[in-house]
Simulated assay, not measured.
Amino acid sequence: MLRIAICDDEQEAVESHKKAVEAALGLLRAVGEMITYTSSDNLFCDIVEDGFHFDLILLDIEMPGRTGMELAEQLRPVLPHVKIIFITSHVEYAIDAYELSIFRYVPKNDEGKKLFNALTDAIGLLMLEDGKVYTIQTSSRLEKIPYREIYFIERDGKNASITWEKGVSKVRGSLQQIYEELASEEFIFIDRGCIVNLIHVMQVKNSMVLLENGASLPISRSHLQGVKEQINTYWGMHI
C-alpha cells in the first residue's frame, strides 16, 4: 500500500488534490492511504519526530511556517526515496525544485491535467519499484538489496560491486551473470563494465549519465545510441 501526504494551507486545495490522487489511484488500480495536512509544521513533526513514512508527498510551496521548499530540503535525508510534487503559483521556484530532485513541478494556474499526469507518473513508478530484491548469499552472509535502492553495478576484477543506498556490496560473479539474475528492464548496460538503474537516471548529457545520488558515469561510444533509445522506450512504456 502506498502512503501519500497532501499538504496545503488552504483546505479547498487539499480537497481538490485529494480527489486527483483518488482518480490516479483508481486509474492505475493502486491501493493508497492518504493523510492530509494544512500545516507544514505538522507534516514535518509526523515524519521527523513520530517516524511517519510516505512514498509520495504533494506540497504547496507558499505556506506559513516552513515553506514547501524548506520542508522538502529537510525531509530528503529522512525519506531519501520519497517522490515530491510541488504545486505553486510562482514559476520562479521551478529551478530550485529541480535542484532538490523534486519529482514534478505543477503550476497552480494550470494544475488540472498536469497534476493528474504527475500523479499517475509518480504512482506508476512507485508501483514499478515496489517489492523486488537482489539476494547475495555466501557461506558467511545473506544480504537482500531492494532493486529501488540500487544505483549502479560495476565490474570489480572478476566480480562486481553494487552501489546502493547503504553503501557498496561486493558480489561474486560477472556483470552479465548479475544482469541475468536481476532479469528486470530497469537495469541496462551503459558500458561493458557498468550497469545502471534507469529508475535513478536524472539526465544523459555529453556521453554521461547523471544519477539521482549525484554519481556521473560515462557511456561508451558503442552504447550511447542504444542507451538513449532504451531510456526513451522505458519511460514511454511506464510513465
Rank of each mutant, 00 (worst) to 15 (best):
H53V: 12
H53A: 13
F54V: 07
F54S: 10
F54M: 04
D55P: 07
D55I: 07
D55V: 09
L56V: 10
L56D: 09
L56A: 03
I57W: 05
L58M: 02
L59V: 06
L59Y: 00
L59P: 03
L59W: 01
I61V: 11
E62V: 01
E62T: 13
M63E: 02
M63H: 01
P64K: 07
G65H: 10
G65W: 07
R66T: 09
R66E: 10
R66D: 12
R66Y: 11
T67I: 13
G68D: 05
G68H: 06
M69I: 11
E70Y: 08
E70M: 07
A72R: 02
A72K: 02
A72W: 03
E73Y: 10
L75W: 01
R76P: 07
P77Y: 05
P77S: 05
P77Q: 13
V78F: 06
V78S: 10
V78P: 04
V78I: 15
L79W: 04
L79Y: 03
P80L: 03
P80Q: 03
V82A: 00
I84L: 14
I85R: 01
I85Q: 02
F86P: 01
F86M: 02
I87C: 03
I87R: 00
I87N: 02
T88K: 04
T88S: 05
T88H: 03
S89A: 15
S89I: 13
S89W: 08
S89T: 02
H90S: 03
H90M: 06
H90I: 05
H90R: 09
V91F: 10
V91D: 11
V91R: 11
V91Y: 07
V91L: 15
E92F: 14
Y93E: 03
A94I: 15
A94Q: 08
A94R: 11
A94C: 09
A94L: 11
A94S: 09
I95S: 07
I95C: 06
I95A: 05
I95L: 15
I95F: 11
D96W: 02
A97D: 03
A97N: 01
A97Q: 00
A97C: 01
Y98F: 12
Y98N: 12
Y98K: 12
E99K: 15
L100Y: 04
L100H: 04
S101I: 13
S101C: 14
I102P: 00
F103H: 04
F103K: 08
R104F: 13
R104H: 15
R104D: 12
Y105C: 01
V106G: 09
P107G: 10
P107I: 09
P107K: 06
K108L: 06
N109R: 14
D110W: 07
E111N: 08
E111I: 02
E111L: 08
G112K: 15
G112V: 13
K113E: 14
K113F: 13
K114M: 14
K114E: 14
L115W: 01
L115N: 00
L115Y: 06
L115R: 01
F116I: 06
N117A: 08
L119I: 09
L119F: 06
L119D: 09
L119V: 05
L119T: 12
L119A: 02
T120Y: 05
T120A: 05
T120V: 15
T120N: 03
D121M: 14
D121L: 01
D121S: 13
